[in-house]
Design a protein around this nucleic acid. Structure first.
Lengths: 330, 330
DNA sequence: TTGTATGCGTTATCAT
DNA sequence: ATGATAACGCATACAA
């Protein structure tokens, strides 16, 4: 006796309704069927509280209506927002989301992809760091923030424009001498264009600028040293800082405060990402806002549109600036 | 011709290895098999890059190795942390996580549960608001923060103790007159015990206290009115506030600052949740910290332990206090 | 239009 | 110990 605790199947419905199995299937899938039959089947479905088993369906159709999202974690508010909006976008299309937190682990990334590769999911959206992921062409894949090759679409915000915008804002706000601070992955990715955009903007506005760039493993102390090196008699050489993301901006602001500097009075700081503490709350700092919802929507749209031929290799979505209390424009 | 883009199946492996289908299955599942056969099969698996189709497996075994997590959203850092740690806990047990953001929508909650009900997932962990969810007994379910009945385990932090702790801390920090501020759901849930614990603590420490409690739909303005009503000649009647969560605490702090009050000099504020902005960063405010990782681990353990008979109805995990700059103990 | 039969990839029960 | 075969729940081509 195994049938006891299990959900009712099509066969049960067919028996209950007194019709054939195929008829039930047709009703379930909206294929025209005699009115009287349809009624009987629907009643039986109602009575038994029947619902299709999507795994059996998937086995048959080779389609699971599930998409995997690979993310380092949801602890970072930007990633958390991404997860939220991607779930919304998928839901709209009747897809479910398998969330896979990779903890930026190279092997975990590959494992998840390999897992998904074998028709376990219909597609993958990944924000990954593994420089040499093996991705078979059979599984639709959309990458966020990192170009993985010409055949795999990459969606990102317009990081170059964002960097440029940051420089312009600092110039507008009266800065004369600024710096760009970056942690992150050294391997080429879209966010790294923030630097180039910023430099470009500084040049355009005749801002003096310096760069301090370290990699993820490097000690944070290097930033502190850098700032202290530019600190003379109670004054910092810079009146404006652009940090590669809001997280870094927050940490840097604390360092500045510990040095006795006031933000934004003495130094103005702009971050990047534009995540909000509680979804609808305040920004962590003045920031370049990524269009998270649009990125999410674009990823899903690209992933699920059947037309594999029109897959643009790189899509950059427009960013905007938002004051968040760490600049003088509040 | 349909076989082209699909993953290799056991049948392919069997043909490649020149053995029978059943033999391949045995090798895959670690069932003893002749050494020479095993080698052949393993080579074939390697060569074809074969991997079992877990949906077919699930169809057969009525088990999908997938758990659904129902959450209002991941925008709130506490929820985001929960999602992260639950994913980790599931991964440890070779389970995958389907993340379902319900946006606190009553119907979405029920829909997700109904979906999961039909052996689509092996279990559900839910943080929900629907007062009358229908949950069949067949699907293992663990609830967070809300008791859904005697047969469904509820995991929460010790909210009563947390409230008590907040009162004690405020007393220790020199407060004489305090208030408790709450938004949230009016229906009975675990977090609502924060109030009772706080009152209890205030009484124990002979603190004067007031309560201002509004429901989720109510206008935030009510808090502002409440505070202004207790604001006379540049002084607030309270020197300490306990907010039901960090989100509210942050908003209230801004209101206080707009009124010209300094935090923590004039008013000390304690929140609840203990989420950190970027996972490893700072707390948003002084706060009662929920043991998120432990809650996650407990939920998963409870959900997946086969023994349905030993299911405690309510588990409260210990909280702790953390200074976060909005009290005088930094 | 309705019913029947076959196959999806796997596991498990049988003979061999 | 190994190989053939049925069954899991569903969809569909085909027969009635």
């Amino acid at each position: 006796m195994k049938r006891q605790n299990s959900a009712p199947t099509m066969k049960d419905v067919a028996r209950e309704a007194g019709v054939a199995l195929g008829t039930v299937s047709k009703v379930v899938n909206g294929i025209p069927v005699g009115e009287a039959y349809r009624k009987k089947v629907e009643d039986a479905i109602e009575k038994l509280n029947y619902q299709v088993n999507s795994y059996a369906q998937g086995l048959k159709a080779n389609k699971t209506c599930t998409v995997a999202l690979l993310l380092p974690s949801t602890l970072n508010p930007f990633f958390a927002e991404l997860a939220y909006y991607i779930d919304i976008a998928l839901l709209k299309r009747k897809y479910r989301m398998l969330l896979c937190c990779t903890a930026s682990d190279i092997n975990a990334e590959q494992e998840y992809i390999t897992m998904a590769q074998q028709n376990k999911v219909d597609g993958i959206i990944g924000l990954t760091y593994n420089p040499n992921l093996r991705i078979e062409e059979s599984t639709p894949y959309v990458s966020i923030d990192r170009s993985l090759g010409p055949r795999i679409p990459c969606v990102a915000s317009d990081n170059f424009a964002g960097g440029h915008l940051a420089a312009e804002k600092l110039a507008d706000l009266g800065c004369k001498s600024v710096a760009f601070l970056r942690t992150g992955s050294s391997l080429s990715n879209e966010p790294n264009k923030r630097k180039a955009g910023f430099e470009n903007g500084c040049l355009a506005r005749h801002l003096n600028y310096e760069l301090k760039i370290i990699d993820d493993g490097d000690p944070f102390q290097e930033f502190i040293d850098f700032l202290e090196m530019h600190y003379h008699k109670g004054r910092l050489d810079f009146d404006g800082l652009f940090c590669v993301n809001d997280e870094l901006a927050c940490r840097i602001i604390r360092v500045l405060q510990n040095m006795g500097l006031r933000v934004p009075e003495d130094v103005q700081v702009i971050g990047f990402d534009g995540a909000k503490g509680f979804g609808h709350g305040d920004y962590y700092c003045s920031t370049i806002v990524q269009p998270t919802a649009e990125i999410a929507e674009m990823c899903v749209e690209l992933l699920l549109q059947g037309n594999m031929s029109v897959r643009p290799p790189l899509i950059c979505l427009p960013v905007s600036y938002a004051a968040g209390g760490t600049t003088k424009d509040m």
